[in-house]
Design a protein around this nucleic acid. Structure first.
Lengths: 113, 113
DNA sequence: AATAATACATAAGAAACCGATGTATATTTG
DNA sequence: CAAATATACATCGGTTTCTTATGTATTATT
């Protein structure tokens, strides 16, 4: 089972930030593979979604980039800025709170009307 | 704290379906109030998002409608069809699984690279 | 009497993603 | 060794979906 893209949408930025917080430094392709790996292929980030997101994070000053050359191939590494680190905490906390709220909506709302 | 709309986006349809499953029959305005109530004002569904969603659910055959007149004011009640009921189970299960997966991404991904 | 709440609806614009396409190098496999 | 696959970046048109604003009308509150 692969999760519908509408579910992934709202959490993409948070997931990317969290991965960068845990791994210090990652490049785009690595992020797609990492997400596939730790979610058992259930979340697959498309390149068309990821690269614009990374560019937006950079434009917002949440990450900085660094190029690495592997032979002739280039890798663009992304790393959190201090602002990015605190933003990551905010977003992760919001998502956790949101999921707790969702649990209430999904589980506890039993014929209360 | 009010959750960012990007988080709410992917779950709106599922939340509406779940409320209908639990309450048999609801009208639009009632849904907005119910969601505010059970989430402690943290999720506020706008009318511009809700009504198009309800219309889409109806067009997809997941709900049927029924008009009620309170004096001169009209209420449009929405009720799940059999198809809607099974779709609700699917969507709720997917969301629960998604949240479990998200927990792994947010909590357990510790320097595995 | 005026304001707020109830109750529906639409519509223009914005945001964000999907799927496709493009370019190029490196590795694996038959 | 040629072909296929994997690695690695990027953009873009079209679609979906929401936001904000607006519109109409009735009922309740202050």
């Amino acid at each position: 089972m692969i999760f519908s893209s509408e579910l992934i949408k709202g959490t993409l930025k948070t997931v990317v930030l969290k991965l960068l917080a845990d791994n210090k430094k990652m490049y785009g392709y690595e992020i797609t593979q990492k997400v596939k790996e730790i979610t058992g292929d259930k979340i697959q980030i498309t390149e068309g979604a990821l690269y614009p997101t990374l560019h937006a994070l950079e434009a917002d000053g949440l990450v900085i980039t660094e190029l690495e050359y592997i032979g002739k191939r280039v890798r663009k590494h992304y790393k959190l800025t201090p602002t990015g680190k605190s933003k990551t905490k905010e977003k992760v906390n919001e998502l956790i709170e949101f999921m707790n709220t969702m649990k209430i909506v999904l589980d506890i709302n039993l014929q209360t009307a």
